[in-house]
Design a protein around this nucleic acid. Sequence first.
DNA 1: TTTCTTGCCGAAACCGGTTTCGGGGCCGCA
DNA 2: TGCGGCCCCGAAACCGGTTTCGGCAAGAAA
Lengths: 370, 370
Amino acid sequence: MTNMRSVGVRAGPRRVTISDVANDLGVSKGTVSRALNGYPDISEGTKLKISRAAERLGYRPLSHAQAIRTGRVRSLGLVLQIDSEDSARPFLADFIGGVTQAASDENWTVTIAAEPTEERVRKTLARLVDEQKADGFILPRTLKHDGRVTTLLNANVPFVMFGRTVEDSECAWYDIKGEDAMRAATTRLAALGHTRIAHIPGGDQYYYTQLRIEGYKAGLEAAGIPFDPALLAPEAMTRRAGAAAFDQLMSLPEPPTAVVCAVDRAALGVYRGANARGLRIGREISVIAYDGVPEGAYADPGLTTFAVNSQQAGERLARLLIERIRGADPEDLRELAPATLVERGSDKAPALSSKELAQRLNDQHEIKNV
Amino acid sequence: MTNMRSVGVRAGPRRVTISDVANDLGVSKGTVSRALNGYPDISEGTKLKISRAAERLGYRPLSHAQAIRTGRVRSLGLVLQIDSEDSARPFLADFIGGVTQAASDENWTVTIAAEPTEERVRKTLARLVDEQKADGFILPRTLKHDGRVTTLLNANVPFVMFGRTVEDSECAWYDIKGEDAMRAATTRLAALGHTRIAHIPGGDQYYYTQLRIEGYKAGLEAAGIPFDPALLAPEAMTRRAGAAAFDQLMSLPEPPTAVVCAVDRAALGVYRGANARGLRIGREISVIAYDGVPEGAYADPGLTTFAVNSQQAGERLARLLIERIRGADPEDLRELAPATLVERGSDKAPALSSKELAQRLNDQHEIKNV
DNA sequence: TTTCTTGCCGAAACCGGTTTCGGGGCCGCA
DNA sequence: TGCGGCCCCGAAACCGGTTTCGGCAAGAAA
């Protein structure tokens, strides 16, 4: 079990090659190869002998030596887009941890790259495909219409998307049921007594934005609250945009007393906007969001949110991709996981009704203007 | 699954190989290889012809085909340790961006892995070395005595450390001058009028902790303030520990009016501790820290801190490692970069003297106990 | 002129695997 | 006894590069 050799002394004794194993047993290296790869034309007895000898000698095939013939390098590709406002950054460590963990289990590795723009991501992706640096790719942050998908589909390279998209035939994916979270958030707020519940959606380029809006509407319907288009704020992916969206909502004649945000960062913008108007989160304004960013825990009061398990996502995506590379039908490789509610202090029964809130905002406005 | 085409084998036009280039020009493939790799025994004219033909035909050598003979896969290895309290997480995206960017520039790739424990990091590192998945490694979070270093030194595998360490002969490294930052923080607080300045250091397993303590002491000396061991708090790498360290400082007969923290997270703990005692940051208590975590900007008031440029660090580390792999002397591959001061609101002139502060804390205590 | 370099390149071995092809036993069956 | 078929496995080709070795021609030295 404990083979001293595999613990990395590469400088001294030469690597154990497949020929060493073959010579040790007096068989041909072709036989060793076929035995180790489970070919049916090698007898069980020989397979056993060979695998034991390989173990004993500490033989580990070099993946790049295999790749020269098989075209497979046993590596998963991951090209990240890292821009300054990347909302995915806090999850990155967990996500990478999940991916590499699952890859390690199968003795695969992960080849990673990061680019600042969509354009450069596509170029790097093409380069990695061209140079066969990975056998397949995980595509994070799927867009509604995603150039990467066409690139990989054309090159006939396996991939798995993190997030659904519009046209997903021939696509494998893993996604979180954001729509269910939005729906649950809405009914939860309704149950607390809110009747004016707004939604601040995510970026239009993401498919999930659409899904989450539908979830919000479904929540309203379940609670028997008619949908009011005025309560569907402009999109917000950042704190700043979230604050702006909130401003717009507060200038409504019948302002909402609760806001469901598609992403946590927008919700933190709501905090800021509320703060600026002297409204307290969890009192005059309730908020529920989605993502589970760490800042949400540090906000005051803590942000109630639906958190996604990024590590699990990474792990599942890696496993799906490996299956896909091994030949599974992409249509069979699709998974949905729920987000989990993290209850903190930002969602409470309304301290003011919408009318009272409007009155108070109006008073402030007049004071300001005096 | 029966007549399904294997996904791993790519369809479409065959790759352009070195033989294609050779045949196109009527030379041998050995000549093409030597020409493209800049061997001196190929005439300049031939080199030019060959490199142009390669360009024209779109020839790209497969790194794993090269690796089988050269042993070099043109890949940098990065094994991260990701535990739940990992203070490096917010920087990870920038760091990875820097590393992969620099690698891309040289047409290298980055092989990444993540493990939760030190033990598993070493095992994974050994596996990657053994399987030749990378030509060298970047070691983040260097410890005072680091097992990874011995592993790699023994295996004769190139590496570069992010952070200095005790015994660094034969080691290449890149580091941030945390000691200078601590010194500057201390003199800055002294210039604001503080005379009782405490230090909350980092974990003892890190070499930088020692350096930063020295920087703090140097700052005191420069300001003409004698070092008081009582003001050297217990180590703190987390918010919780930071709050605990602050508690201890506040129970001193002559409590500090300012705190220099080795890491931002500890400083955020100081915020919490001050808050709990009704002390306002930037008034009764001033704080300067180090790291530049995003939460520092969201704290109230914003945390004045010395920020490190993680992207640049990643980029420089990658470049140093590539040079190291190409044979440069590790002793020549050492770089120090400064941290940059981000002025926010947590460092101001003291609102109370140490004595007054002690008095006030004492009053509170008595009220509590009544 | 002869010999010795030197520059330049082709031929072939080589790296560590995989895969094709074919053939030697052994069995069953006529 | 002869023959076909099946089970195993060896031999060798192959993958796409790199590197060694040696030879030819031109120029320099004798």
